[in-house]
Design a protein around this nucleic acid. Sequence first.
DNA 1: CTTAAGTTGCACACCTGTGTGCACTTTCGT
DNA 2: ACGAAAGTGCACACAGGTGTGCAACTTAAG
Lengths: 212, 212
Amino acid sequence: MTTTAPVRRPRKDAAANRAGILRAAATMLASDPSASIDQIARAAGLSRRALYGHFDDRHALLTELIMGGSQRFNAIAASIDDTDAPLALARLTARLWTEAAHVQIAAALALTEAHVEETAAALAPLRRTVAAIVRGGQEAGTLRTDITAPTLARLIEEAARLAVSRIDASSPAATDLAVRAVLSIAGLSWRETETLLATHPDIVADAARSTR
Amino acid sequence: MTTTAPVRRPRKDAAANRAGILRAAATMLASDPSASIDQIARAAGLSRRALYGHFDDRHALLTELIMGGSQRFNAIAASIDDTDAPLALARLTARLWTEAAHVQIAAALALTEAHVEETAAALAPLRRTVAAIVRGGQEAGTLRTDITAPTLARLIEEAARLAVSRIDASSPAATDLAVRAVLSIAGLSWRETETLLATHPDIVADAARSTR
DNA sequence: CTTAAGTTGCACACCTGTGTGCACTTTCGT
DNA sequence: ACGAAAGTGCACACAGGTGTGCAACTTAAG
């Protein structure tokens, strides 16, 4: 499996390769969370051996990947300032989806065993934002109260994860779908969601609503 | 890691052990989809070597596990006869959850790579049932129409999977939560769900609605 | 009690993946 | 054009997991 063509390909800038590895790791791990170092290195156009020149070991690579991804995630979470809970959730979902385009995302989310704790810790700010939105929404009466705030927050996170990782990421209508899924879990009826999205067309921007 | 106390424990009936292995495999794989043969055998109170006396190889064990689980699932799906789509979905979710209590379930669902196709095939009847309910619901106007039938069916499946595998299976209120999640994705507002569950108290049976 | 099925440990071959050492080649930067 | 940085192949040691062969032991069943 490690065998490749013996042709010696021209090499690119050094530092750029490091970034390339991270990118490759993100996409590789997105489709197969247990992709081997070799697979990642090859996908980045480098040899396995070279990868070890950039990262001490598997763990180091994964950690850096998680950190990078979660920083972007947390930044997005911090940028949400809507007071209305459903609106805030909709916007948060849409931005997470589009900006950090299903790459770093899926990777950081679909990670396995030894890194779940790490990932969880790194995403704490995002999680806190969601929790705050949920709490506020319940108090304001704009979110369901049949489910405890912590549980609801968790469900919403899972719904988002579901939308992000389980749906054909390439589709243009994917964002729309993700937002609808999250708002549904949040307790809105589909008609209410429809109204909300119609009132705030900027959330889902364009996207062909046909192939939904 | 394979080392155990040299004490020779009394052994039980032969055929019963086979069932024990399947049970152990279900619970083991539920928590760790890539549990080793040794772990499973030990969990069943047998040696790794003995396990191979019951199953040709890993694949054979997994296949039998999947078949068993999906048969029960499909049987439950076939037992649903409600005409109202939301009601049908609610009952289906509740029964799947309770009857095949988070054991065979999570295992069959959380399975990995080489078995996803197999699992998918085995669960085809269940999938067909869901698709039919969705189609019927959309035609009757009792289910959301902002999402295509196939996509909605898929979303619902994923929501159910989410509820089943990502939530503390032990909690008594888990069934309630699972049903609410599915109905939410189906497009109902949380108040509509509340009403539906109140009208049909048999769906979630008892379960402490306090710790929800 | 006897027999055969069921189990057990252990050894072995084989496979995949990880991380490192080493000699050698390529290419960027100056 | 030169030297250091970066990359390549290959070999090795090591760790886990799988599936099999085998001799010896335990126990259910007749």
